[in-house]
């Protein structure tokens, strides 16, 4: 635990050691606002809820979370500190979890900074705050899944740009796999069980349940198992490729 926390603290400080962290937070808050008010027609709908705000979160995360995750391991590789880190009395799993926690705390800060919109909607009407809380949790879980994917890809390369592009692409697959367009491609020629498996892997469909206020245990299991799986893959990647 001590090692995990030591790593997490160091990573978190590394985020704020550069202006990029602040730029990121500003962009995130601005974009969530833009999506909610302009594209999501927050006012025109005349309803006191945050559906239009949360609806676009997975799409925002698609670009922003890989940007947070890309440096986690690629930078260690590039700077040669991987050798230092792996010869300290820390196990690869501890390092993986520590880095993930740091990234996830950073994303929590980003989400907390969007909370004025929650305050606003409470001023304007009487929204269902339970749904909003559930949506925040759901959004945070989606970010966690993308972060775990991004961290894993980051461990496979020393080039942050490659890490960013590849993890954004993989996250995209997990977003769209539940949409009708993708399912239409599969329907008819693959067994139903396969197409329903593909759609159940979609981060989006689980997220939609949550943002409707349906907090199903299965959705939580889905997110948790995705994070655990990717962090496991991350540990394997670190262990096998540490010296490359």
């Amino acid at each position: 635990m001590r090692n995990i926390w030591a790593i997490a603290k160091r990573e978190l400080r590394a985020y704020f050691g550069t202006p990029i962290a602040y730029v990121f937070l500003a962009i995130f808050v601005a974009l969530t606002g833009v999506f909610a008010f302009f594209i999501g027609t927050f006012f025109e709908r005349g309803e006191a809820d945050l559906r239009p705000f949360f609806e676009y979160h997975p799409w925002l995360y698609l670009l922003l979370v890989p940007a947070i995750a890309m440096r986690l391991w690629a930078e260690e590789r590039r700077a040669g500190t991987m050798e230092l880190l792996m010869t300290l009395p820390i196990s690869p799993a501890q390092a993986v979890i520590g880095k993930f926690i740091a990234g996830w705390i950073f994303l929590a800060i980003a989400l907390v900074l969007t909370m004025p919109i929650w305050y606003s909607v409470n001023k304007l009407g009487n929204p269902d705050n339970g749904v909003i809380i559930a949506s925040y949790i759901g959004s945070y879980l989606v970010a966690g899944v993308f972060l775990a994917i991004g961290a894993t890809i980051s461990a496979l390369t020393k080039n942050q740009v490659i890490a960013f592009v590849v993890s954004a692409a993989i996250c995209f697959l997990f977003v769209v796999s539940g949409t009708q367009i993708v399912l239409n491609v599969f329907q008819g020629w693959v067994p139903d069980i396969v197409s329903s498996a593909i759609s159940s892997l979609s981060v989006l469909s689980h997220y939609e349940n949550v943002t409707r206020g349906v907090f199903d245990f299965r959705d939580i299991v889905f997110y948790a198992s995705m994070v655990v799986f990717w962090l496991f893959a991350n540990t394997v990647a670190v262990h096998l490729k540490k010296a490359d």
Partner: peptide, 23 residues
């Protein structure tokens, strides 16, 4: 390690504090 890699964005003090904690 060769080339004495360390975390460039840290100060020697914060770097050594990190090492102490891990150690």
């Amino acid at each position: 390690p060769e080339g004495a890699p360390s975390y460039g964005e840290m100060t020697p003090l914060s770097f050594l504090r990190f090492i102490a904690e891990v150690r």
